[in-house]
Amino acid sequence: MKTALVSAMCAGAVLTATAQQPIFSSRVDAVRVDVLVKDRGQVVRGLGPQDFEVRDEGVLQEIDLVRLEQVPLNVVLGLDVSQSVNGERLDHLLTASNTLLDRLNGEDRAALLTFSHAVRLRQELTPDIPRVREALGAVVPQGQTSLVDGTSAAIALSGSDVGRSLLIVFSDGVDTSSFLSSDVVLQSARRADVVTYGVAVRSKINPKFLKELGELTGGSVFEIESTKDLSQTFLRILEEFRQRYLLSYTPRGVPSTGWHRLDVRLKGRRGTVSARAGYQAGR
């Protein structure tokens, strides 16, 4: 396998620490792209590298396909536990989270972060799933909603040198108390290597932030009518994430810095491709 999974994904991860003038290193330059393929709403499985075409800034790249069964998952739950998530909604949320944890495999890891007005790291990434369950049990809904702040922290938490990272962000309302602007968090999400799925309770308020985050990271948003079927939604996300393809390539013929627009297509097949819109390399 050309690309070690311990590599830090998109080139941004190899920036040196000087924040003012980050320097792009050519030492590690592998780019991984997490891809979902659907045809008429159904996930398409069994594809090989020959079925994909990846263009980085319009330049066709030579790709490799990582075998997903070799790659453990890092599942981060970013859960809204504000005052409005009380009573039945909380029950549904806890049940859904535990159901999802039940489906993780031996090598998979999970983490729990909650947000009301305060963001709380309940459990860092760990293969010890019972600890995550225990942390879930201690959640008490209260306060307002810092969706953007919570998402920012969850993205930071989900970064890992091992495995594929899935972030599920659940919120039932409007962001009322974040300090960070959504623009800043969306911009930083471009550099992260995590696929984000938002789950929002349908209301008159458009979950714009979660939608944009999903589009940027190759995930999506599920707008649910009620939390009653939240377990099914979480499982559907997990299942869908497991059925994705992980493409890898070493960029050729493109600048070593800046925003790289990605275009992933199928070759000679019908279907829709979901992948992150691009990646940030250097500055």
């Binding site: 620490a17 924040a19 963001v119 920012s152 930071a156 970064g159 960070l180 800043v184």
Partner: peptide, 29 residues
């Protein structure tokens, strides 16, 4: 929390994943 959120976001914008997390970890835990 908020100042650390800001510092973390700066690190994330610079692609410094480790620092993005270490900036917030103490105040979130």
């Amino acid at each position: 929390q908020s100042p650390n959120m800001g510092i973390s976001a700066l690190a994330a914008l610079a692609g410094n994943r480790g620092e993005a997390f270490s900036a917030i970890e103490p105040v979130l835990s």
